[in-house]
Design a protein around this nucleic acid. Structure first.
Lengths: 322, 322
DNA sequence: GGCCATTAGGAACAGTTCGTTCCTAATGGC
DNA sequence: GCCATTAGGAACGAACTGTTCCTAATGGCC
């Protein structure tokens, strides 16, 4: 029994050594495991019988290596951890990363199989008696292979090539230095330096189609902003504006800066009681609405559509007030 | 070796049998496992040596049972499943369920320990090179014990007692029949029938402090709505309005119903070209803004604050338009 | 082709483990 | 006290384990 435990421990240790991406000679393994090389060969045979694909090369530069498709060692969790895994997998199955749903449900089935009945009933009750309010919009889905490949390219400072689908569906070939992934709610963005355009760009990950092979390594540049979250959220918001305007607001700049979300525009000081706001929106009417929320008098400069919208709204409000 | 595998399989089967919430006699286990009772006693001793708390009762009605705190059997995942678990645990650690974070990180450390180096580096790169745009507001946190206890009470039709903290911090004792949990973004709500008030209520789960013991079982009533998600989201939104108004809109009801979010109010038909909208907001000005977004002429009825706000806005927009 | 270093695997052996049979002892309900 | 349960030691034959010893095959290098 004690020897069986030691043998099991030695098998797990062998499996762990084989999981590093190198080749091991029988002599090296025997030294590490403190057994004879014949015993190593016995253990290798046992791992193979347990389904682990151990590959061997004979000859002067031979050795052992774990092949692709190897099963992972067993995972031992306590009650709380298993419940956390089950809850986390349900959350992931409902998230923004596509393709994780099936895998998560498969893993979840395995986790539930090892849960004792009382914990399984609890996890199931939470699922059965919870109603979710649907998100206003179903977010775009992101391929986990693409996501992790981009993360690896960021880490290794490797240039990537990809086709980028624009809003209207047309695709352009891009060659870029990837730096960071940004997750904003259900959307994922890649902050990269577009080599052909010689400038920084923010790409939607769900519109990226990688074109292997990757490119050469690059020397990293300074990032375009310290606060990348703010950089991306501001850039993304302003990119969708159809109408832009510059208005003079009759209030101090710091007061208005508090009332204006960073994604809604920018504030410049004119003097102590006046500031200029550059803003925009999809429609002139909604722009007028947002400006109204600043709760201060203002003057329009060189934005005839906005002026027209303001007159229409003023007339409508005057009539409605009675 | 073959016998060693059979012994391991038999130990796992014994562990599985012991996980059901009943007591097993040695004779029964011997029959199920097709070994002698002496071997069952040997196996029980082995499970104990492996850390599983197997309790035994001697005598005429004796037997074996697995005690509290038992370790779970080993979990075998493939690569994709392990990565899904790792990604799901990171998602859960960033989610709305408090207390899951520490447990998730503990489980995550165990998962990463069994991952081969190439997968571990991938999962780590995703974490390291991802920046999250912070949510506009940090959501309230929910205790997972409370959450799963409420789910179990819903399932078993058991009345619950709890202290409910209101917005201003005061707590009231409640006695309610729980029916469903509703998850809306980062907030969790409980739809229950308040027994003392004799009516349906929607409670914020983060403000519930359960007071055990639970109450008696109840015969379930019909739910207050078929679409509970809409019921809760509408009820929650309207509860926070400081100002309410009824306006007559000069447009067909179906056109306005499309433009008005369900959480922003309700639409009634007056005739083919007119409908009535009941709406509200925190301030009269923001109510005027939302109404402006309907993009239709309207008339205010019996809402002097709204009329005054509309006049002020009309004057401001007229001056700003130049 | 020879040399050398690698993996592959059979055989013998002493020591260890396993499951079974047999047995005595303790416990708990009726 | 009777009966049914768990507890655990001992003996035994069968099976397993790790080591030593050995022959055979493979592959790179000179």
């Amino acid at each position: 029994m004690q020897n069986m435990l030691e043998t099991s421990a030695r098998l797990l240790k062998l499996l762990s050594l084989l999981q590093s991406p190198r080749e091991w000679s029988g002599t090296e393994l025997a030294g590490r495991l403190e057994v004879s090389t014949r015993t190593v060969r016995n253990d290798v045979e046992r791992l193979r019988n347990l389904g682990y694909p151990v590959h061997a090369t004979r000859g002067a530069v031979g050795g052992y290596r774990l092949g692709a498709g190897a099963n992972l060692p067993p995972l031992l969790l306590d009650d709380e951890e298993a419940v956390a895994v089950a809850v986390g997998l349900r959350t992931a199955a409902a998230g923004s990363i596509a393709g994780v749903e099936d895998t998560s449900l498969r893993a979840l089935a395995k986790v539930e199989q090892v849960l004792p009945v009382r914990l399984r009933r609890r996890v199931n009750a939470l699922q059965t008696y919870t109603v979710a309010v649907p998100a206003r919009r179903r977010g775009p889905e992101v391929d986990p292979q693409v996501l992790t490949a981009l993360a690896a390219a960021c880490r290794d400072h490797e240039r990537i090539r990809f086709d980028y689908r624009a809003h209207d569906g047309t695709a352009t070939r891009r060659d870029a230095e990837p730096y960071r992934l940004v997750n904003w709610g259900r959307k994922w963005y890649l902050v990269a330096y577009d080599v052909q355009r010689g400038d920084w760009r923010t790409f939607r990950v769900d519109r990226i189609e990688p074109c292997p092979p990757g490119g050469p390594r690059f020397a990293p540049r300074p990032l375009p902003a310290e606060d990348l979250a703010a950089y991306v959220s501001r850039g993304v918001s302003t990119a969708t504006w159809h109408y832009r305007a510059r208005i003079v607001v009759h209030a101090p700049a710091d007061v208005i800066a508090q009332r204006l979300p960073a994604t809604a525009g920018s504030v410049e000081v004119i003097d102590e009681q006046t500031c200029a706001v550059t803003t925009g929106a999809d429609t002139a009417e909604s722009m007028a609405m947002w400006i109204g929320l600043l709760d201060a008098d203002f003057t329009v400069q060189d934005a005839p559509e906005l002026s027209a919208a303001l007159r229409r709204l003023a007339d409508r409000y005057r009539r409605a007030a009675g």
